[in-house]
């Protein structure tokens, strides 16, 4: 074989390996969706969304779970945007770039994003539940999950700010803008797409988290809707887990149906993130 023939064979081989592994991943995902749809799809109707969980599998629904998930996500989004974006702005625009303190913070953020989520649950149990006496409430859940996904938002916000051309920042300063005005009038609006993508990806991570919420003591059976952020709650993945751990097969059908809802929500969030990214990419023409 000549050298170019060898290269061709090798290229072909690599392409094949790549395609096969891609196909494998897609097949696993598709069969998961299909499996859930076949087993749980028939269970999804209006009643499923408007009923509380029940001891009778046929009457049980996910009302408290999806309301809980929605509320926890809203609190998480609010806290994450507030703290995550401010932290990123500080690190990117106000901190001294090569200061040891800045380096330490950056290192910490990287470490945090690699920490197992259950440790966040333990941390929250100690600080929010016991020390601040917030209980196993919606607020505690929101605080815990936003801690968990803060690194994602901080990193993506910094990336978004950094990808803006620096000569436009100069243009803003040259017009007499302060640092804050430059952020407010130019950088934030221009980086909004990237920031929102990060926030949504963070939420799609948070929406499926179960371990830290179980750790802080979220209930698995709730037959009422929370009235304030200090009330106990449950969320979709916990409801799912609860049904799955029952021996009766009817409950497993419910679990599949709840899984389908959760998966749809996660995929929808990811889709939104992708759409935003495409739009942003189109609008950038420097």
């Amino acid at each position: 074989m000549t050298r170019s023939q060898k290269r061709k064979v090798f290229n072909f081989f690599m392409k094949l390996v790549g395609l096969l592994s891609l196909a494998l991943a897609l097949i696993v995902l598709l069969s998961l969706i299909l499996d859930l749809a076949i087993r749980g799809g028939g269970r999804i109707d209006m009643d499923f969304f408007t009923s509380f969980p029940s001891r009778r599998a046929g009457q049980a629904g996910i009302l408290s779970a999806w309301v809980g998930t929605l509320l926890v996500m809203l609190i998480t989004a609010f806290l994450t945007i507030l703290v995550g974006v401010s932290a990123a702005l500080y690190l990117e625009e106000y901190s001294k770039q090569n200061h040891p303190m800045t380096k330490l913070i950056e290192l910490n953020i990287l470490n945090l994003s690699a920490m197992p989520s259950i440790l966040y649950g333990l941390l929250a149990l100690g600080i929010f539940v016991h020390y601040f006496k917030l209980g196993a409430s919606l607020l505690t859940a929101g605080l815990t999950l936003s801690l968990l996904v803060l690194p994602i938002v901080i990193v993506s916000t910094r990336e978004a700010l950094r990808s803006l051309p620096s000569n436009l920042k100069e243009a803003s300063f040259a017009l007499g803008a302060t640092r804050f005005q430059t952020l407010y009038y130019y950088q934030l609006p221009s980086a909004m797409g990237g920031i929102m993508t990060g926030v949504i990806l963070a939420l799609s991570r948070a929406i499926g988290e179960t371990a830290p919420l179980i750790t802080i003591g979220a209930l698995t059976y709730i037959a009422f809707l929370p009235q304030s952020i200090m009330d106990p709650f449950t969320v979709l993945p916990i409801q799912l887990f609860n049904w799955l751990s029952r021996p009766q097969a009817e409950f497993h059908v419910n679990a599949a149906a709840a899984g389908l809802v959760l998966l749809t929500l996660t995929l929808a969030l990811n889709l939104i993130a992708i759409l935003i990214r495409i739009r942003v990419r189109k609008s950038i023409k420097w």
Binding site: P165, N167, L168, E170, A171, S172, A174, Y186, P189, S190, S283, I284, K285, W286
Partner: peptide, 9 residues
């Protein structure tokens, strides 16, 4: 500046 730098507005 040397390079035109309008804002994306």
């Amino acid at each position: 500046f040397q390079k035109p730098n309008p804002f994306p507005k």
